[in-house]
Design a protein around this nucleic acid. Structure first.
Length: 639
DNA sequence: CACGAGTGTCATTCA
DNA sequence: ATTGAATGACACTCG
């Protein structure tokens, strides 16, 4: 039915339903239509003169005032008849500009929550909204009955809708309002639907307005699709209105996507915090921090080294008591430990004293073990034994330790001294003088200043009290360095570049023990800074992540508020559109002057923008001109 | 005395 | 092969 715009089929199949719309016979404007009945299909075809420009539009003069000359497609001179979408919207108090700019949001109540629930909740929401809408429609219908619009005026408005530009806007409105697709569901906004009288629909009420599939036509039947077999009269039925706009479900999806975007945002942010990125950024950051930290470190070591330089023999002599002995032993232990560690670095496995006389038995140098020993292994005994073991060395301990002394100590195998502290090792040691020495050598643990010493002799506390603050600030390595009489400050040892460091070392004739201690001090010093930076970085990451969490939560709340607002706005506009739709529909009259039943007819819009009055009973939606289901479109229904 | 934070150190990996 | 950075894990100290 190429030429049919709004077919009339009301007479034959006008099963007056129990619509709430007051169908007044005198309002039957369709009687004024010029139409022909298709002999094959029985459809009523509008007369050519009723067709609108281009032959596409069908809504012709439907003059409620029996004005045959009235055409809907053309701008009617009469202002009252010149109906366009803007006017229509104004009629219902709807601003088009608003709709165009409105951003669709998912209809989910809780967008950020479970999306899984969205379909169900969506449906519920839709139903609720539909009920509300139907109620509103009922009210509007009643109001309309009380205050019927001038048929002609309405007709004019309707006719104006046919105009291309206006139709686009109409479509926009329709899309925006998410009118249901008659191909899938019944007309939603009609009161009839609310009454569930539509024979073609099982639902008591119209299709859920929010139902994704109800709101928009399928792809196959989408009027917006050029290939859609909807020739002239596309049902203006809400269902068939082109739905370029995503339906709620789509919105849900979109929303989900948006959440995905949000999560993508999160993901992005997460990427920011991603190990790689973050690490990368942080690296530089922390490298800078490290550099900035270094000065303090350097300061620290500088101060301590200065102190150490100031101490020299005098200081040593002042502190060289049992604590000094501990330092000596600690240094020796470090030496042996460093040797052992060197073995670790070089070979990745511990070396045994058998391989190198200067290397202690390969016992893991786990400090905790040594400290554990110290605590358990009789401090006094260990300490004293250690001193005793040092032998001649011990006799020198009132004096600053000297290399010769250390040599002597090394001869005594400080490694054994150190590792004798380990419980495991001691348990393994069965007998032997050397073993005994090891067993009783707890000097490392006993290091008076050692922060790791589990148990401290009371004498140590006394010594501690005696010592000044500067002495207390000495680190173990500094004490070791002092004990070993290292010519290089710990600060330099740790922070000097490798070249300069080697150059400095080469200047002195250092013993193996001293070199080992220097290497250990350097390694530990750098690792200490690295650990500090690492921890600082970790804290910063945690802080950053916490900030991100707060920011995302805030955005989530904002989005939800926006969603609620848009949802309300959508419902508001939808109600207004329903009012407009009903208003227009009530203005249509069949040739007998009777109003069309919303149960049986619906307004639909074709792809070209023409508005048709199509019977709901037609399952094919007037898509097949050759079939008997030609839409009984009401082209230009006369009013 | 238990607990948590801070720290030092070791072991390991990677560049 | 050496060195340093980074980091997990452990032990210790301290409030």
């Amino acid at each position: 039915m190429p030429k049919t715009c709004m077919t009339m089929c009301c007479r034959e199949e006008s099963p007056k339903s129990d619509t709430t719309i007051d169908e007044k016979p005198e309002d039957n404007l369709w009687l004024q239509l010029n139409f022909t009945v298709d002999s094959e299909t029985g459809e009523h075809l509008l007369s050519p003169e009723n067709h609108i420009s281009g032959g596409d539009v069908t809504l012709d003069s439907v003059s409620p005032l029996n004005s045959p000359s009235f055409t809907l497609n053309e701008t009617v001179p009469d202002f009252n008849l010149d109906f366009n979408l803007d006017e229509a919207l104004k009629f219902v108090g709807l601003n088009c500009s608003e709709t165009g700019e409105t951003v669709w949001k998912p209809s989910e109540p809780e967008p950020t929550s479970d999306n899984k629930e969205s379909p169900g909740k969506e449906k519920e929401d839709s139903e609720d909204s539909l009920d509300t809408l139907n109620d509103t429609l009922d009210d509007m219908i009643q109001a309309s009955q009380l205050h019927p619009q001038h048929p002609r005026s309405l007709q004019g408005r309707l006719g104006s809708l046919v105009r291309g530009g206006e139709m686009e806007r109409w479509q926009e409105v329709v899309q925006y309002l998410g009118l249901p697709n008659p191909h899938h569901t019944q007309a939603p906004h009609t009161p009839m639907a609310a009454h569930g009288t539509s024979p073609t629909h099982s639902h008591g009420h119209g299709p859920p307005l929010h139902h994704p599939h109800a709101l928009y036509p399928s792809h196959e039947t989408s009027p917006s699709t050029p290939a859609a077999p909807v020739p002239r009269g596309v049902l203006l039925n809400n269902a068939t209105l082109p739905p370029p706009m995503p339906d709620p479900m789509t919105h849900n999806i979109t929303y989900t996507n948006s959440m995905g975007a949000s999560s993508h945002l999160v993901t992005s942010s997460m990427n920011l915090t991603n190990s790689s990125d973050l690490a990368g950024s942080d690296h530089s950051q922390y490298k800078m921090e490290a550099t900035t930290t270094l000065p303090s470190e350097m300061m620290y070591y500088q101060n301590t080294s200065t102190e150490m330089n100031q101490t020299t023999d005098g200081l040593l002599s002042s502190i060289l008591n049992d604590e000094a002995l501990g330092l000596m032993e600690m240094a020796m232990s470090d030496y042996s430990g460093s040797r052992n560690q060197s073995g670790d670095y070089n070979t990745g496995s511990y070396r045994y004293a058998a391989e190198d006389p200067h290397r202690m038995p390969s016992i893991p140098l786990k400090k905790q073990h040594m400290y554990g020993r110290g605590g358990a292994g009789g401090l006094g005994g260990g300490s004293s034994s250690g001193v005793a073991n040092v032998g001649g060395y011990g006799s020198h301990y009132p004096q600053p330790p000297s290399l010769p002394v250390m040599e002597g100590a090394t001869a005594l195998d400080p490694a054994e001294m150190k590792y004798s502290c380990t419980m495991d090792f001691r348990s393994q040691e069965v007998s032997g003088s050397s073993v005994e020495h090891v067993q009783h050598n707890h000097t490392y643990h006993m290091s008076p200043e050692g922060p790791s010493g589990l148990s401290r002799p009371t004498s140590r506390d006394k010594q501690k009290n005696r010592k000044n603050d500067s002495e207390r600030t000495l680190s173990r390595d500094e004490k070791r360095a002092r004990a070993m009489n290292l010519p290089i400050s710990c600060d330099d040892i740790i922070n000097l570049p490798m070249d300069e460091f080697n150059e400095r070392i080469s200047k002195y004739d250092l013993t193996e023990a001293q070199l080992s201690l220097i290497r250990d001090i350097r390694r530990r010093g750098k690792n200490k800074v690295a650990a500090q930076n690492c921890r600082k970085r970790k804290l910063d990451q945690i802080t950053h992540l916490a900030d991100e969490v707060r920011a995302i939560q805030s955005r989530k709340n904002d989005l939800y508020k926006e969603y609620e607002y848009l949802n309300l706005e959508r419902n508001r506009i939808k109600n207004k559109f329903s009012l407009l739709y009903r208003h227009i529909f009530q203005s249509l009259r069949d040739p007998d002057g009777n109003p069309y039943s919303p149960h049986e007819y619906s307004l639909q819009q074709s792809a070209d923008g023409s508005i048709l009055l199509v019977p709901r009973s037609s399952p094919g939606h007037s898509v097949d001109p050759n079939s008997g289901n030609k839409p009984r479109g009401k082209d230009d229904a006369k009013q």
